[in-house]
């Protein structure tokens, strides 16, 4: 179990001096933060800020250059598999098997996470109905539209109940109905099962509405963290959006530099196949 931070809060995610470089470029630059049990915590930042890179390190997909990461008190560097048992994730990028049907994608996930068959079947039908995919459950996923694939990714993440749920820009490309369903579901498992939620977004309103605590990240560094009110008070503004702009506005040049780096990366991907 995580150590006790104050009288009541048990730390579930603990990040200390985390650094990740891609050759000479530092994508995550010495960040530290903690997330308490049952908390909903949001990473808010522009494209290229380092949000996904942080999530990839937290979910064992990337190894940090330095710093330490603990989930539920377990060090990711020493026992990644124990950590994997404790989290669920919706990736920013696709992660479905396009050659399988929607139902088969759910099933294989259930097997990976040792969900008992009876529960798996029940939950699968509930979730596929909730996200409007029930009629399409026997269809091969590669024929799905972008929105349907995204909905399936999200439905799949709720098949097992993890201690920590990572959501990396989960609402990107979703219609308002599905957004609403997603956040309702997130709040529900957060309240009933005490699931800790770590999400990234660049939509202020979402962060403001669902997250109890927000960290604003820009250029690989955390510019500020606290509740929405605290961030507003700190900057002397009256909305999260204004506070965000006040905190990240000074680095617009860095931001656009990152964005063009992003575009270069996209180009490289297009021409050079799949780069790390």
């Amino acid at each position: 179990m995580g150590e006790v931070l104050s009288a009541m809060i048990v730390v579930v995610i603990e990040v200390q001096n985390l650094v990740k470089r891609f050759s000479t470029f530092t994508a995550v630059n010495d960040i530290s933060f903690t997330v308490g049990k049952g908390e909903i915590f949001a990473f808010l930042g522009p494209n290229g800020a380092g949000k996904s890179t942080t999530i990839k390190m937290l979910t064992t997909l990337l190894r940090p250059d330095s710093g330490s990461l603990r989930i539920d008190g377990i060090d990711l560097a020493t026992d990644p598999n124990e950590v994997r048992k404790r989290f669920g994730i919706v990736f920013q990028d696709p992660s479905l098997d396009g050659e399988l049907t929607a139902e088969e994608n759910m099933d294989i996930h259930g097997v990976f996470y040792h969900v008992p068959t009876k529960i798996r079947v029940e939950r699968t039908s509930e979730l596929l109905k909730l996200f409007g995919l029930w009629e399409k459950r026997k269809d091969i996923v590669k024929m799905f539209s972008g929105g349907m694939k995204r909905r399936l990714e999200i439905a799949r993440a709720f098949l097992h109940t993890p201690k920590v749920l990572f959501l990396d820009e989960p609402t990107l490309g979703l219609d308002p109905q599905t957004r609403n369903q997603l956040w309702t579901l997130v709040k529900q498992i957060n309240e009933t099962d005490q699931v800790t939620v770590f999400l990234t977004t660049h939509y202020m309103d979402e962060a403001d509405k669902v997250a109890q605590r927000i960290a604003i990240i820009d250029g690989g560094k955390i510019a500020a963290q606290g509740t929405s009110q605290e961030l507003q008070a700190q900057t002397g503004k009256t909305s999260l959006e204004e506070a965000y702009l006040a905190l990240t506005g000074s680095s617009i040049r860095d931001e656009s530099a990152n964005t063009s780096a992003d575009q270069l990366k996209q180009m490289a991907k297009l021409w050079g196949g799949n780069r790390r």
Binding site: T59, T60, L61, N81, R84, K85, F87, I89, F91, D93, P94, S95, L96, D97, G98, H109, F112, Y113, H114, G273, N274
Partner: peptide
């Protein structure tokens, strides 16, 4: 191919030896 199409991510985070 799994790397290209992303399913590798799902496999890599799975709590399976």
């Amino acid at each position: 191919w799994d790397r290209q199409f992303g399913f590798l991510r799902e496999t890599l985070v799975a709590p399976v030896p």
